[in-house]
Write a protein that binds this DNA or RNA. Structure first.
Length: 879
RNA sequence: GGGCGUUUAGCUCAGUUGGUAGAGCGCUUCCCUUACAAGGAAGAUGUCGGGAGUUCGAGCCUCUCAACGCCCACCA
């Protein structure tokens, strides 16, 4: 009993995956050698959050990176896929704070040092969890090089970059209006703010003039900010308010006096044409205030509560901003200051992390001056040093870069890279340096850096930077390609390009491969709150890892469209894996007695040549497509080749050849060779099953593992275009005969005989494949007759190319049915011919179309005419 | 307000220099043929969103309209 006989008829994904991954790890096949002479291929993983769990987006992203890594590893490159995680400032701090809250504590109870200790502990516990989940995906990344955005090396890189940028004048500190999240209690950057349309109100409030009759009515969406008003602005050319400019009004409720000013910022046609100016709590108002030298007044604090200060009426102080709004409106109404309320739809900024409504807040923050840095980042994409796939994302990237705004990098958090700025305890003097100049007398800035600041350095901080002389940096930087979704082009890709160019003078990668986002079956974004997530680990448990990978890969279109998935879609990959498994079982079971020699190229049958030619074409196309990042396409090519060519036809024909003592040995070699190569071609997509089977194949050479085997490429010696075309003729014959059988309801168990009336040039082909036709179309006897000999009365017929196949049916045939069948075919051919003739008779076509097209059309017409004639003859014979 | 994407078989989607449309699932009929019923065989199914244009010829190029989706900007 051979090993193949012991293999189950259903592929057991789980045990294979465990066994193979262990095998790869034990043999350190994922480890990249920085001293290798091979050309480098490197990818750094988009580091998943240390707080995270594996989701479908990771599964897709990881699969694509693994495919590229495995492909290049097999194609003569020293391939490195570098894994790691992101400390994820806000997200991680939030999780730990939540944990503390459950214990009735806040981070302030612990104090910064103790809190960080707790968070480090937590992070260290969770750091490898998500990467261990990536292992279930078959990820062939090099864990010996695993990094963390908050590890020592990354921290050194962050300090170096910060100090350098500061010294170059590209980092500055100042008071500006920022997006403030009252829940995170921190500033966030512009791109971390997402806008949502909300149905709100526009309140019109009357501000009475000082020392005279009358009032000015302003419209606002945020009445609670009125206590921070420093002016009312109108448009300078607005005749309604011309006489009021320069006069003073009282703020209702608080009775503070403020001036009426003129500023072009005001839109005359909106609301009442008069705007209240609150510089501390609105970005536009801040600009207006600056222009008019008005001192901002803060009325809302970091938690979104009304400040306890003289400007805020006592009843309002300490209230949450929404309670304050309600109360203010009530008081205004009671006071007859509220003129009108209208429904108003407007956009409200939300914190990307926690969806809390952003409070624009004037505060002291650190910024990166982006414009000077963006110049090179724009040039690198425009001149082709970096290319986006698909190309359209370049436009998106450039559009953002060309309108870049300064990047607020300070966060009022504890978990993260603390800003390397130190203040003298007495004088307040500030020193920006990698180390504290004098810990006795200087205290470090309490703010942390935006997580993306450290992620932006990832491609080179992981390679040794600030030391650019490390073996890894020299061998693997710049990296080859960055694989990610379009949602983080601005957050991450743009920053890496900017920082990479500034600090290494090189683009951190030459290609940015952007794939679509995973969505649920209705096209909705997956999220825990919607409850529509599909857990990749569940899919792996249910269908197998290779099935998941194959399905996801097959859904990756070149255009990078979003991918809609449901559980059932993974049946596609599972069924294919099972097919591979069973076809392999068949081959393995039929290799008894095979030698170690290569295929004897001199005794190939027509079918052998055909499958070798097909395999060769597939290898060629796969290599071309993978190089062009048409990764979904390779799944389709290999599926079609393996299933429709190898399994459906070649394996079936091999069964016949194996029974022929003269053909047996070489057929075994061809079966083995094609299986071997197919598995290699498939390995980057379906690593486990291919490795498992490959190691069961008795082989000529002593490869240790498929993961290290050479990837197949096109080889001239396997090119048989002529023979392949002849073979297609055979397939057409067999299909036609099956069609007749089915059409006349002839059971497979009923033997039939046929006569082949071959055209001269096709006769030898038919003679060579008699055994195939007999077996695959279930024919009892085949007689060769002259093409012009009489056709028996009661028979069906097929016209194949220039030859005819006659199926004498005697009583079985319904003559009318056969006539109808033939007439239908004739109709089809005739209409095709007419359309072609229409073209050929069009002088414009014949004079303008390329010669090949004209020639092709003529040939096809000839072919059709020949077949038409045959069919007509056959019909006449039936009548 | 600006930009991008999508619209092809009942469903989900491919379609690479313009040459009369493909896959998977589903559907119909037949088959447990010694790798596989998660399988095999044979089939049916499309005015390629509407309109106009360029061209000998358009799913593919140009314009326009429509629907849906996304991104950016953000007038209180």
């Amino acid at each position: 009993m051979s090993i193949a006989d012991e293999l189950a008829t259903v592929y057991d994904a789980k045990s294979t995956e465990e066994e193979m991954y262990k095998f790869w790890e034990e043999n350190e096949f994922f480890k990249a050698d920085e001293t290798s002479d091979k050309p480098p291929f490197s990818i750094v993983i988009p580091p998943p959050n240390v707080t995270g769990v594996l989701h479908m987006g990771h599964a897709l992203d990881g699969t694509l990176q693994d495919i590229l890594t495995r492909y290049h590893r097999m194609s003569g490159y020293e391939a490195l896929w570098l894994p790691g995680t992101d400390h994820a400032g806000i997200a991680t701090q939030a999780v730990v704070e939540k944990k503390l809250r459950a214990e009735g504590k806040s981070r302030f109870d612990l104090g910064r040092e103790k809190f960080l200790e707790e968070t480090w502990k937590w992070a260290n516990e969770h750091k490898s969890a998500i990467l261990n989940q990536f292992k279930r995906l078959g990820a062939s990344f090099d864990r010996t090089r695993e990094r963390f955005t908050f590890d020592e090396g990354c921290s050194a890189a962050v300090k170096k970059v910060f100090v350098d940028l500061y010294n170059k004048g590209l980092i500055y500190k100042g008071a500006y209006i920022v997006n403030w999240c009252p829940r995170c209690m921190s500033a966030i950057s512009d791109i971390e703010t997402e806008y949502e349309t909300e149905q709100g109100h526009l309140w019109e409030i009357s501000y009475p003039l000082v020392n005279e009759q009358g009032a000015i009515v302003v419209a606002t969406t945020r009445p609670e900010t009125m206590f921070g008003d420093v002016a009312i602005a109108v448009h300078p050319s607005d005749y309604k308010y011309k006489d009021l400019i320069g006069k003073k009004v009282y703020i209702p409720l608080s009775r503070r006096e403020i001036p009426i000013i003129a500023d072009e910022y005001v839109d005359k046609s909106f609301g009442t044409g008069a705007v209240k100016i609150t510089p501390a709590h609105d970005p536009n108002d801040y600009e207006v205030g600056k222009r008019h030298n008005l001192k901002p007044i803060w009325v809302i604090d970091e938690q979104g509560k009304m400040i306890d200060c003289p400007e805020v009426p006592e009843d309002i102080r300490g209230l949450d901003r929404y309670e304050a709004r309600e109360k203010t409106v009530g008081m205004l109404s009671y006071n007859n200051s509220l003129i009108r309320i209208t429904e108003h739809e407007h956009n409200v900024g939300k914190c990307q992390r926690c969806n809390t409504t952003i409070e624009p807040l004037l505060s002291e923050q650190w910024f990166v001056k982006m414009e000077p840095l963006a110049k090179e980042a724009i040039a690198a994409v425009k001149d082709g040093r970096i290319k986006f796939v698909p190309e359209r994302w370049e436009k998106n990237y450039l559009g953002w870069m060309e309108n870049i705004r300064d990047w607020c990098i300070s966060r009022q958090l504890w978990w993260g890279h603390q800003i390397p700025a130190y203040y003298h305890n007495q004088t307040g003097e500030m020193v920006v340096a990698e180390e504290n100049p004098d810990p006795e007398n200087y205290t470090q800035d309490t703010d942390c850096l935006d997580t993306w600041f450290s992620s932006g350095l990832w491609p080179f901080s992981t390679m040794g930077f600030p030391n650019t002389e490390t073996a890894d940096f020299k061998k693997f930087y710049p990296t080859s390609v960055l694989v990610t979704g379009f949602d983080i082009i601005f957050f991450w890709v743009a920053r890496m390009i900017t920082m990479g160019l500034e600090f290494t003078k090189k683009a951190p990668f030459s290609t940015v491969y952007i794939h679509g986002l995973i969505r649920d079956e209705k096209g909705q974004k997956m999220s825990k709150s919607k409850g529509n997530t599909i857990d990749p680990v569940n899919i792996i448990d249910k269908y197998g890892c290779d099935a998941l990978r194959f399905t996801l890969t097959s859904l990756c279109t070149y255009g990078g469209q979003d991918i809609k998935i449901s559980d059932e879609r993974f049946e596609y990959g599972r069924n294919f894996a099972n097919k591979i498994w069973n076809a392999s079982r068949f081959v393995l079971m039929n290799l008894d007695g095979v030698d170690n020699n290569n295929i004897d190229m001199n005794s190939l049958t027509l079918a052998d040549k055909w499958i070798l030619n097909k395999l060769n074409d597939a290898a060629k196309e796969v290599n071309e497509n993978i190089k062009n990042y048409r990764i979904g396409e390779i799944a389709h090519i290999l599926y079609d080749f393996f299933w429709n060519s190898y399994c459906d036809w070649y394996v079936e024909i091999a069964k016949i050849q194996l029974q022929n003592p003269e053909q047996k040995l070489n057929t075994q070699r061809v079966l083995r060779y094609v299986l071997d190569m197919s598995l290699r071609l498939l390995h980057p997509i379906m690593p486990h099953i291919t490795e498992k089977i490959w190691q069961l194949i008795p082989k000529q050479s002593e490869f240790k593992a498929i993961i290290k085997a050479d990837y197949p490429v096109y080889e001239d010696k396997f090119s048989y275009p002529q023979e392949s075309e002849e073979m297609e003729l055979v397939f057409e014959t067999i299909k036609s005969l099956r069609n007749v059988r089915q059409g006349f309801n002839i059971s497979p168990s009923v033997p039939i005989n046929i006569e082949i009336r071959a055209a001269k040039e096709e006769k030898s082909v038919f003679e060579a494949v008699v055994s195939y036709i007999k077996r695959l179309a279930r024919i009892n006897e085949i007689i060769f007759e002259d093409i012009n000999s009489d056709v028996p009365k009661k028979s069906a017929a097929c016209v194949v190319s220039k030859s005819r196949i006659i199926i004498p049916l005697e009583d079985l045939i319904d003559l009318n049915a056969e006539i109808k069948r033939q007439e239908k075919k004739l109709d089809k051919l005739t209409s095709e011919k007419n359309s072609l003739l229409g073209r050929l008779n069009n002088e414009k076509f014949t004079s303008k179309a390329p010669k090949e097209v004209i020639e092709q059309s003529k040939q096809r017409v000839e072919e059709i005419e020949h077949q038409e004639e045959s069919i007509k003859e056959l019909i006449n014979n039936l009548k």
